[in-house]
């Protein structure tokens, strides 16, 4: 029996999914929950910061610095570091995942806001928009698709990396990756990897749909017109 067949067998085995077996359903929910919490925390930090930098068009160097540096950080190293400082459990991997998620969200929010044409902003101001109105009626509608795009890529990165939660005793799907490696149970290792990929694709498709709806109808029409014009020209 080859490895691929064994992997499929592992994935379809009732033992893999039942609550007294490996309980993959609970572990998957854990995994998704950790990813969602990490991205939510990162969004709370990165969206306002990205908006501020995009709106003022200042500190863009900070974006480059933060995104570059944060992406270079090895997440396993961070998990170990925070694990040693704060003890085992969910907090160390969560901090590491938030740090991982921030760059995408920060960069996309910044791009989404700073890419709004200044004439649009001037027109809004000229009509007497307050900053709050500007955010609600101009920034948010026009920047939303980009922000969702940032959340999308952050979520996907976090989902792939959240296996590290198992490294410090917090569970999730990483449990099967580590168990599979350490017991040389290749079918389990591959099965869990494949399952994480499936979940990642499902999440990506969901976000893709949200992103499409997050683009205002007017912008979609305008985009269609300009691309028609540019292809005609």
């Amino acid at each position: 029996m080859n490895v691929i067949q064994e992997t499929i067998n592992w994935l379809v085995s009732p033992q893999t999914w039942s609550a007294d077996g490996h309980d993959m359903i609970a572990r998957s929910l854990e995994h998704l929950q950790y990813s969602a919490i990490a991205v939510a925390f990162a969004a709370v930090l990165a969206i306002p910061a990205g908006w501020f930098m995009g709106h003022t068009r200042r500190f863009s160097g900070v974006i480059v610095g933060i995104t570059g540096a944060a992406r270079a950080l090895p997440t396993l190293g961070l998990v170990t570091l925070f694990g040693l400082l704060l003890g085992i459990g969910l907090v160390p991997p969560m901090i590491a995942l938030v740090i991982l998620a921030i760059p995408s969200i920060l960069a996309s929010t910044y791009s989404g806001i700073s890419a709004i044409d200044t004439s649009v902003l001037d027109a809004a101001r000229a009509q007497g928009f307050t900053t709050r109105q500007l955010i609600a009626r101009v920034h948010l509608p026009l920047g939303l698709a980009m922000i969702v795009g940032g959340l999308r890529s952050a979520f996907i990165q976090v989902m792939s990396t959240a296996i590290l939660a198992a490294y410090v005793g917090a569970g999730g799907l990483g449990r099967f990756i580590f168990l599979g490696i350490n017991t040389q149970h290749t079918a389990m290792l591959l099965g869990a990897s494949v399952w994480i990929m499936v979940l990642v694709i499902v999440v990506d498709v969901l976000f893709g749909t949200i992103q499409r709806f997050a683009t205002p109808a007017g912008v979609r029409r305008l985009n269609a017109t300009t691309s028609a014009q540019s292809s005609a020209g």
Partner: peptide, 17 residues
């Protein structure tokens, strides 16, 4: 304002996983 309509392809998550 220029904006890519599909800034991320489906292959990115696959590749990173």
């Amino acid at each position: 304002s220029h904006r890519a309509k599909h800034p991320r392809s489906v292959f990115l998550p696959l590749a990173s996983t």
